[in-house]
Design a protein around this nucleic acid. Structure first.
Length: 257
DNA sequence: ATGCCGTGGAAACCACGA
């Protein structure tokens, strides 16, 4: 069973690329971020025609997350990150699919830092960590996947010294990620590839993709039940090289049925 | 060191992204 995450950077502008990737990669579950579409403008029919059920939480212009599943029922258990009624960003959606608890997230970017956007990022992170604490001990397999906007270590960025002041790599951000991981989550990519240079994002400019000047910011966090089932993981790096690609590449894991 | 590119939405530019 293949589970994927893909920050599409505009689900409608990206639709041909998304459909091509869905057909080629054929994930059983696909989590999308940055839909950049209001609820009613999600391309439901095209996704359905491609063989996928979908739930989504849209928002005009920005954010937006979706969970797709091929030939499997999606039982939605929540949308919007709990803990702050005033937070209206569409950055979290959660479902149970074939007994697997799936949390799809788009953690705030947080730049410029310091400042209100960085404060929002850290506050969101704190709420997410609280929510994750309630899921880690589940007897169900749990996977929290998506665009974390966190560069966990210096190995996860092409030139760490240039990112020390950035909201994706600042000490506060890495500390928040470490605090979350200390609950007992497994970083699926790093478990299988502890030393490799693996990126999931490449800037649109400065030929970042061609130079492999990337970042690893899209992650799969697994609880113990899910970790037991982990078989493989990877980045569909070549998709980043397609015409009209997102600046992120799709990332996936393979787990035992 | 840098939004140099790309998307969406509104308005022929701006906000935002990482």
């Amino acid at each position: 069973m293949k589970i994927a995450t893909y920050n599409v950077n505009g689900v409608n502008g990206r639709l041909p690329v998304l459909l091509r990737w869905l057909e080629e990669s054929a994930p059983d579950i696909a989590c999308l971020q940055e839909l950049k579409a209001p609820q009613e403008k999600f391309p439901e029919q095209a996704i359905r025609d491609a063989g996928y059920n979908a739930i989504w939480h849209g928002q005009k212009s920005w954010n937006g997350v979706a969970i797709l599943a091929k030939n499997r029922e999606i039982q939605e258990v929540g949308r919007g990150l709990p803990g702050d009624p005033e937070d209206v960003h569409s950055r979290y959606i959660e479902a149970i699919i074939d007994g697997i608890h799936v949390g799809c997230l788009y953690l705030p970017n947080g730049n410029p830092a310091p400042g209100p956007k960085f404060d929002y990022k850290l506050g969101w992170f704190e709420r997410f960590t609280t929510h994750a604490a309630g899921l880690i001990a589940s007897k169900k397999p749990v996977v929290l996947l998506g665009d974390y906007n966190v560069i966990p270590t210096g190995k996860d960025v092409y030139k760490p010294e240039r990112w020390t002041e950035d909201a994706l790599f600042r000490p506060e951000t890495r500390a928040a990620f470490e605090k979350l991981m200390a609950q007992g989550w497994t970083d699926a990519i790093r478990k299988l590839y502890p030393e490799e240079t693996i990126y999931t994002f490449w800037d649109y400019f400065r030929n970042a993709y061609e130079r492999n000047a990337g970042l690893r910011i899209d992650h799969f966090l697994l609880n113990a039940e899910m970790d037991k089932r982990l078989l493989a993981a990877g980045v569909d790096r070549h998709v980043r090289g397609w015409e009209k690609s997102s600046d992120h590449g799709p990332v996936w894991i393979e787990v035992a049925e």
